Simulated assay, not measured.
Amino acid sequence: MKTPLILFAVSMFLSAFGYFIPVWSDALLLGVPCAVASLWLIWRACFGGNAYLVDEPKPKRVTKRGQRSKPRVDLNHIQASAEAEIGARKWVIVDGSNVMHWINNEPNIKPLLDVLERLEHHGYTAGVMFDASAGHQLQGKYGHDGTFSQLLGLPLDRIMVVPNGTVADRYILKAARDFRAKIVTNDRYRDWADNFPEVNERGFLITGWYRDGALFTSLGPKPNRSMRVR
């Protein structure tokens, strides 16, 4: 209502100005039509509801029902799903830098492949973690997660090469705790026993060795056939 009244007042002023001062008579050409238009808007405002002109659209009212239907992130559900995923599998973390030295204490990809096959036969889902130097020892150049993913035939999300300047031990122990997993290694982690006392639990560390070219582990023999070094 305020805008049409201002428009009407300005229009009447222009019309009067043009009527009484002949030199500015052209102002009537603008003032009279504007006065008529403003009178129409005033009439609509008074007798036609609020349908004349709305400067800004009214914001939509959010009902309680609409608020209830708004999707929400259920953190408890996400955490429960993650816990279910962990619990649904029998996880094991492979100390890749340790296992790859199981044949004659020299870097070799074969022990890793043999161990992964043995773990699969025993129903484990394996993740493998390496020191940053593992690629240089095996191939003479840095090996990233993708390199070992291809070498071992494992998904990328089950491989980790730790950052330069760090040792893999802490990452391995933390991952084993998070996934409630065992660790495949011949390392006893004595320096970490205070923070990770589980290393002293019987069966937590799965050890392995080769004898006459065959892989043996503390898990026991392979369910089917023995594995020989080619």
Rank of each mutant, 00 (worst) to 15 (best):
P4K: 13
I6C: 09
I6D: 06
L7G: 08
L7S: 06
L7T: 00
S15E: 07
F20V: 10
S25M: 10
D26L: 02
A27P: 03
L28E: 04
L30D: 03
V32T: 03
C34Q: 08
A35V: 01
W40P: 00
R44K: 11
F47H: 00
G48K: 11
K60Q: 05
K64W: 08
R65F: 02
Q67C: 01
R68P: 02
K70R: 10
D74Q: 03
Q79G: 00
A88M: 10
A88S: 15
V92L: 10
I93P: 02
G96A: 14
V99N: 07
V99H: 11
W102A: 14
E106Q: 09
N108G: 01
K110W: 06
P111T: 08
L112W: 09
L112E: 04
D114R: 03
R118L: 07
E120S: 04
G123H: 06
G127V: 08
V128Q: 14
A134N: 13
L138Y: 07
G146K: 09
S149K: 03
Q150N: 07
G153E: 02
G153P: 13
L154A: 11
V161A: 04
L173S: 09
A175H: 04
R177L: 06
R177K: 12
F179R: 05
R180K: 11
R188E: 07
A193L: 00
D194V: 15
N195C: 03
F196C: 12
W209Q: 11
F216V: 14
L219G: 07
N224V: 03
R228Y: 12
V229K: 15
V229R: 10
